[in-house]
Design a protein around this nucleic acid. Structure first.
Length: 491
RNA sequence: GGCGACGUAGCCAAGUGGCAAGGCAGAGGUCUGCAAAACCUCCAUCCCCAGUUCGAUUCUGGGCGUCGCCUCCA
C-alpha cells in the first residue's frame, strides 16, 4: 500500500516519501489570531489533522508545526482601535483557537510557534537575503527582489509577466495604486508600504516602525532598522527553526498558494539554497450558503461558536468538514448538511457501541468475514489515494448495514467481531468520533465534583470555582441544584 | 482581461471507458405493549451539443452555468 498525495508543485498525485525514512516534518499555516476562526479556517485546520493522522496510521513519526500569526495589519488596526498592545489584543483569540481545536478533536501540533516570539530568526534570515542581494532596503522597509528569483510563480503556475501587469486594474477592481478603502478600515495601513519598490510585485520582508507601532508593542530592533516583520517571512523562519531547511509537507488553504506560499518558497530557497518543501497540499474553500467562499468581507462568516450556539455538536461539525467532501473540493455549509453529518456520526457511534457490546455467536459467517476484510482494505486504499475519506466512509456505511443485519440474525462470531472492532479502530483513527466520553471520565468528574463540594462546605470558593472552570474547559458544565450537582457535556 | 476548477437524485457527495458508492430527507414494511435503534423495499436516462469508441457520466472539442486565484485571505 502506497500513500499518494496531490502535490500542487507537480499538479499530480505523487507517491509520498519523506526525506528521512519513517519521519515526517510537516508545516501548516495556522490562524491569524485577529478574530475567531471561521468554519472555513477550521476546515483547513482539520485537513491538516487528517493528513497528520493518516501519516501516523501509515507508520510515520510526524513532527507537526502550526504557526500562530500574532502580528499583521488587521491585528495592528484592531489593537489600535481597542487601545491595547497587540499581545493583549490577541490573547482571547489564541485561547479561542485552542478551544475550538480541542472541541473539534484535532490532535495538538508538536509546536505552535508565534511570529512575535521568533523575531530574531526572521531578522537573521532577512539579513542573509540582503547580503546575498535577494532583498534590498528602501526607506527603512526591506523588500524581497522577485527579479532575483527566476522560478517565482512555479507553485501557483502564474507567470511573472501576468503578475507584473497588476491585472485587476483591467477589471475595474482595486488597482495597486488605488487608495480605495478596504472593508474593515485597514486602508491607511495597507497604503503605507508602497513606496520605493523596485518592482510592484516585490513584497515586504520588514516594515519600518511607525509611531503607532511602538505603542502597540509592535516594533523590534534590527540591523536594517527598527520595525516589524512582513507576513510571509515568519513561516520561512519558523519552519526552518523547527523542521530544518527542507519540509516534507507544507499545507495550507488554496488562497494561500499565491502569494503567501510562493513568497515563502522564494525567501527560503534564496536564503537556504535548498528545496523548501517537497509536497504542497492545498485544501479547498468552504463556501457559505450562497455558494461563495466564506470570508469576513463577504459577510458569510460562521464561527464554531455560531454553530454550537445553534445546537450543532462540534463532533458533527468535524465530521461535516472532514468526511462529507474530499479536501480538494469545495464544500458548502448548510444546516441540512450539518444535520446529515450529525446523523452519520450517530449511526457510526451506535454501530461501534453495538459491536463492542455484542456477544459473539458460535459460528462465523465466512462471507461476512471476507466482506469485512474487503472493506478494511478498501478503506485503507481510499485514504492512501490522496486522503479520500468520503469514499472510505461510504464503504464503512455499506458494511455497517451488512454487519448490523448479521448481528440481528446472530451471524457474527468471534472472528467477525474482532475484525469489526479493528474496522472501527481503522475509521476512528481519522474520524475520531466514536469515543463519546474519555475512558474514566465519569469517575473523574464525580471525583472533582466531590472535591468541589468539600471545598464549598469549607467555604473555599476559590478552589470550588477553579474546579468548575477546569471542567468547563474540558467541555463539562456543572449545575448546582437542590437535588445535587449535575454535569453535562456542552461540546 | 489572464490562469484554473467545478456542474452526478429534493439536499450533501464518491466514483469509473462496460448494470451510477454512501449519507440526509421522503414513502412503504419487519420488529416492538408503544416508541427508539436496527433491518428490508422504493427513490438518477450523471448541465447541453457534437466527436472518438462495440460501448462515454467518465476521453476530446464547443456551448451554457457556478465558483476560485491574479499581492487582505484557511
Amino acid at each position: 500500500m502506497t500513500l499518494r498525495l496531490h502535490n500542487t508543485l507537480t499538479a499530480t498525485k505523487d507517491v509520498f516519501e519523506p526525506v528521512a525514512a519513517g519521519q515526517v516534518g510537516m508545516y501548516t499555516c495556522g490562524p491569524t489570531v485577529w478574530n475567531y476562526a471561521h468554519a472555513g479556517n477550521l476546515r483547513a485546520f482539520l485537513v491538516y489533522d487528517l493528513v497528520r493522522r493518516h501519516l501516523q496510521v501509515s507508520g510515520y513519526d510526524v513532527t507537526h508545526v502550526m504557526n500562530l500569526t500574532d502580528i499583521d495589519d488587521r491585528i495592528l488596526d484592531q489593537a489600535m482601535h481597542a487601545g491595547v498592545t497587540i499581545g493583549d489584543y490577541v490573547k482571547p483569540y489564541v485561547a479561542a483557537f485552542f478551544e475550538d481545536m480541542g472541541a473539534l478533536r484535532a490532535q495538538p501540533a508538536t509546536h505552535y510557534p508565534r511570529a512575535t516570539e521568533h523575531i530574531p530568526e526572521m531578522v537573521e534570515m532577512i539579513s542573509e537575503l540582503i547580503e546575498n542581494q535577494h532583498a534590498y532596503i528602501a526607506d527603512g522597509d526591506v523588500y524581497f527582489r522577485i527579479a532575483s528569483f527566476p522560478t517565482y510563480g512555479a507553485l501557483s503556475h502564474l507567470d511573472r509577466a501576468g503578475l507584473r501587469a497588476g491585472a485587476r486594474i483591467a477589471q475595474g477592481g482595486r488597482g495597486l495604486g488605488s487608495a480605495e478603502p478596504v472593508p474593515g478600515g485597514a486602508s491607511s495601513r495597507i497604503r503605507q508600504d508602497k513606496y520605493d519598490k523596485e518592482s510592484v510585485s516585490d513584497f515586504a520582508l520588514w516594515k519600518k516602525a511607525q509611531p503607532d507601532d511602538e505603542k502597540l508593542g509592535a516594533a523590534w530592533d534590527a540591523p536594517f532598522g527598527r520595525g516589524r516583520p512582513g507576513w510571509h517571512i515568519e513561516c520561512s523562519a519558523m519552519s526552518k527553526r523547527y523542521l530544518g531547511v527542507t519540509l516534507d509537507i507544507h499545507a495550507g488553504g488554496v488562497d494561500l498558494m499565491f502569494p503567501h506560499h510562493e513568497n515563502e518558497i522564494a525567501q527560503s530557497e534564496a536564503a537556504n539554497h535548498k528545496q523548501f518543501a517537497r509536497f504542497w497540499l492545498h485544501s479547498e474553500h468552504l463556501a457559505d450558503a450562497t455558494g461563495e467562499k466564506m470570508s469576513k468581507s463577504a459577510g458569510g462568516f460562521t464561527t464554531l461558536r455560531d454553530l454550537t450556539d445553534a445546537g450543532h455538536d462540534p463532533v458533527a461539525v468535524r465530521f461535516f468538514l472532514l468526511a462529507s467532501a474530499h479536501y480538494r473540493t469545495r464544500l458548502r455549509l448548510s444546516t441540512e448538511s450539518l444535520h446529515a453529518a450529525a446523523e452519520q456520526v450517530r449511526r457510526l457511534r451506535e454501530f461501534a457501541d453495538r459491536v463492542q457490546r455484542s456477544t459473539p455467536s458460535d459460528v462465523d459467517d465466512g462471507d461476512l468475514l471476507r466482506r469485512i476484510g474487503e472493506v478494511r482494505t478498501g478503506y485503507r486504499e481510499a485514504l492512501d489515494d490522496d486522503l479520500n475519506l468520503p469514499q472510505g466512509v461510504g464503504l464503512v456505511f455499506e458494511l455497517a448495514r451488512e454487519a448490523n443485519a448479521a448481528m440481528d440474525s446472530g451471524r457474527v462470531g468471534e472472528r467477525s467481531r474482532d475484525a469489526l472492532l479493528l474496522l472501527v479502530d481503522d475509521f476512528d483513527a481519522h474520524l475520531d468520533i466514536v469515543r463519546s466520553e474519555e475512558p474514566g471520565l465519569a469517575q473523574e468528574v464525580a471525583r472533582l465534583i466531590a472535591e468541589r463540594e468539600a471545598a464549598r462546605k469549607g467555604r473555599d470558593f476559590g478552589r470550588a470555582d477553579q474546579i468548575r472552570e477546569e471542567l468547563r474547559e474540558k467541555g463539562i458544565a456543572l449545575e448546582d441544584s437542590k437535588e445535587g450537582v449535575r454535569w453535562r457535556r456542552v461540546r
